[in-house]
Write a protein that binds this DNA or RNA. Structure first.
Length: 271
DNA sequence: TACCAGGTAAAAA
DNA sequence: TTTTTACATGGT
């Protein structure tokens, strides 16, 4: 048993709900009440445990991966203090206490995952993404490592179309896989600089760049204002207020706010 | 059966 | 410059 030292509060069930809601995710597999993920070619199991999080096997690599994956870097206390002063969040946040948005640990994975989710429902996106992972990822136990750029670079547009990608999305994905992107260097840049660099890439617009800031870099102020689901959540909780204007009111906690509003919408908080 | 779903780039106006 | 269109799959 490997008890990971993990910041409080943390609600494992609430935080991993995403992996059960939309469909099967062979790279972040929910099975037997645990989350499974490949770390450096090995299978890692993450589960809830009294007083923390159980990680098997637990070592430096899996511990760091689990922390990243489970959103340990989010600071919840300042957000909760802010939420108590904001009328909508004061109602939405307390029932979701301990929710930490799970992160995409890898930048390439984050971008390709977003491309699969452009325009289509997340149910459809998860199905297509699962086929991509099982076709080009490397298996580690019951879970798959997300396909590397090097491996996808060897595939063809036809291959990806056969998985359900549109021709356009297949082009985007191969373009990313075959380019020398230097994605890890983006972490050193300010939010707006990251976005500017990303939207230069074909197939990456503001929506994808915003979710990259939110779900990969965990930037506190990321706010995917164009996102259809976030628009619905804002409309639900704030009426017909402008989404960007609401974002400014939530500064500098837009990222956590977006995740809590979405979770609140799905959980039926306040209804 | 249609229609919509956590967009984007390119064409047309 | 702004508006319109094509895109592919899965759920309802």
């Amino acid at each position: 048993m490997g008890l990971l030292n993990f910041p409080e509060p943390y609600d494992f069930d609430l935080s991993t709900a995403r992996y059960r809601r939309w469909g099967r995710d062979p790279a972040n597999l929910w099975e037997d009440d645990a989350l499974w993920r490949a770390v450096d070619g090995r299978e890692m199991r993450v589960a809830a445990l009294d007083g923390g999080v159980d990680v098997e096997p637990l070592d430096a690599a899996t511990g760091a991966a689990a922390r990243k994956l489970l959103g340990a870097e989010f600071e919840l206390d300042p957000f909760y203090a802010f939420a108590a002063t904001e009328p909508v969040l004061a109602r939405v946040v307390p029932p979701l206490r301990g929710l930490r948005p799970p992160l995409a640990p890898d930048p390439f994975e984050s971008l390709v995952t977003s491309i699969t989710a452009q325009q289509v429902s997340l149910h459809a996106a998860f199905a297509i993404r699962a086929r991509l992972i099982e076709s080009y990822g490397v298996r580690a136990g019951r879970v798959y490592a997300f396909p590397t750029a090097e491996r996808l670079a060897l595939s063809s547009e036809e291959d990806l179309v056969a998985l359900g990608f549109s021709r356009r999305k297949a082009e985007y994905t191969l373009g990313l896989a075959r380019a020398d992107l230097g994605l890890t260097e983006l972490a050193a840049l300010e939010d707006e600089a990251v976005k500017a660099r990303l939207v230069e890439l074909r197939g990456i617009g503001e929506w994808t760049a915003d979710w990259f800031l939110a779900r990969h870099l965990a930037r506190p102020r990321a706010w995917p204002a164009g996102d259809l689901a976030l628009r619905k959540a804002v409309a639900h909780f704030y009426g017909d207020a402008d989404v960007r204007a609401v974002g400014e009111r939530l500064d500098p906690f837009q990222n956590l706010s977006a995740h809590y509003l979405l979770a609140g919408l799905y959980a039926g908080v306040g209804s």
